[in-house]
Amino acid sequence: MPQIVVENLTKTFRVAERDPGIGGALRGLVRRRHRAVAALGGVSFCLEPGELVGYIGPNGAGKSTTVKVLAGILVPDGGRCEVLGRVPWKERIAHVAQIGVVFGQRTQLWWDLPVVESFDLLRDIYRVPKADYARSRNELIALLALEPLLDVPVRQLSLGQRMRCDLAAALLHAPRLLFLDEPTIGLDAVSKLAVRDFIRTLNRERGVTVILTTHDMDDIEALCTRVIVIAGGKIASDGTLEALRARVTRERWLLVDLEDADATVTDPDAEVIRRDGHRIVLAFDPDRVATAVLIARLAARHAVRDLFVQNPPIEEIIARLYGGEEPARP
């Protein structure tokens, strides 16, 4: 039975508008103009227990709005939505006791209190039984290496440390469902890896269903078995990462390092899309020319120092999907 059912969800915001400048400001005092912005224009999907889904899209596409509807924060204008058998905004209190939420750009910890006091407060708020709390707290402290941070006031934590604490805070009450809204935003590489490892462990070992919104495609590649792409308030694609790749492009990239930086490289079946000193990037269609053939041809004509084949970065693919057309190549 699916944990989340979303059918034809719609949500429109009214945004006050005014012309720029002092004249516009004065006119706005007398008569307010409102513009309706459709954040969600009929979104549908289902989620099974234990899935780890990436929910991606450009800024303003409706990602956060969807997450906020699922979390019971926003009331949609239309459509059906059931999470763990409940309509989130109708039974908000019972609903939110079963979910964990992290908004990457905001903290749910008490700014002025030491981390451990925030945890204790959340225990009281979620009414976690003493033994369960001790167990899940100790587990989270071990998994996220929080021991040295517990007595530090939240305002003194670095962003990476704060995010680890925020993740723990969202999980103290052992929710079955976790919403992560840009959990790696602004983090350095080491912190990103720590957060990713933790999310993976949580999903694989504890079976927590995770919905992850992000702009970091490495998050998606590292974690998600399924990717839902939303653009302009509508689902643009829903499936595995491989299916997403295949839908947009079959293209592969061949990266070649040449001995001679000034060599002219041409090939009938490949296109040079970037040159950077000794390095040349060629795009080709593996259905038209076998990779081995292409490599052999290049190696026969040029002194090749090194080469490797890769898929186009996921950013490229997503950009094409958002735009619906070929984006400018790097």
Binding site: K68, A71, G72, I73, R92, I93, A94, V96, A97, I99, V101, F103, Q105, R106, T107, Q108, I125, Y126, R127
Partner: peptide, 14 residues
């Protein structure tokens, strides 16, 4: 102002 109020609404409290 910052939107952190969203967290107030994900607490199982009135």
């Amino acid at each position: 102002r910052t939107g952190t109020v969203a967290y107030e609404l994900v607490r199982p409290l009135d």
